[in-house]
């Protein structure tokens, strides 16, 4: 059972003017993590395939896209996208000013922060097909419904779980 917060949560989207390298992503995520108040977070961007997907070179490994490991909050996980957008749900509006300051510290170029509604709160048919009955609604909207893999990293105080299993 998830404990409901008694403050009004807000959802924001950070859009940097450039795609982020793994080192900058790590720095930004750590700054955001240090600011606190995160209910859920999603990094978004174009896919970085591990091998050439089409054409005469199909299947050739792309070494540059492998082992893009970043460490956030003391836990390591692998990036599979070029980070271009970060969506967050914050516990309350009081964390927003700190979030802006965190972005200013971490990003060497300009960025936009938008407030809006970025995560759905009712499970879709795809969610039902992937998870069955969803008990913890925080996972809604964190997964690309078209992805063949569930790219979901749950960072907890105890351990990191990367659910990256292939779906049939």
């Amino acid at each position: 059972m998830v404990t409901e917060s008694d403050t009004e949560s807000i959802q924001v989207e950070i859009i940097p003017n450039r795609y982020l390298m793994p080192a900058t992503t790590q720095k930004l995520l750590n700054e955001i993590y240090g600011n606190g108040g995160i209910t859920r977070i999603m990094v978004h961007g174009p896919n970085l395939p591990r091998s050439v997907p089409y054409g005469p070179g199909r299947g050739t490994p792309i070494e540059e896209n492998r082992d893009l490991l970043i460490e956030v909050g003391g836990q390591v996980f692998e990036l599979s996208v070029k980070v271009g957008r970060i969506r967050l749900e914050l516990e309350s509006e009081e964390y927003l000013a700190g979030l802006k300051a965190a972005c200013e510290r971490a990003l060497p170029f300009s960025f936009q922060i938008k407030r809006g509604k970025f995560f759905h709160n009712r499970p879709t048919i795809t969610d039902y097909a992937k998870f069955g009955k969803v008990e913890d609604k925080r996972i809604l909207g964190l997964i690309d419904p078209k992805a063949k893999k569930n790219r979901l990293a749950i960072l907890s105080e105890v351990q990191v779980t990367v659910d990256d299993k292939e779906e049939c």
Partner: peptide, 26 residues
């Protein structure tokens, strides 16, 4: 880019390069 041509309308990378998911140039 003979294939996987994605990049024209995407933001640039931090170092000012056009994004290329196959990393053909560096």
């Amino acid at each position: 880019r003979g294939c996987t041509v994605h990049g024209h309308s995407l933001r640039l990378e931090e170092n000012g390069m056009q994004f290329d998911m196959l990393a053909r140039t560096e």
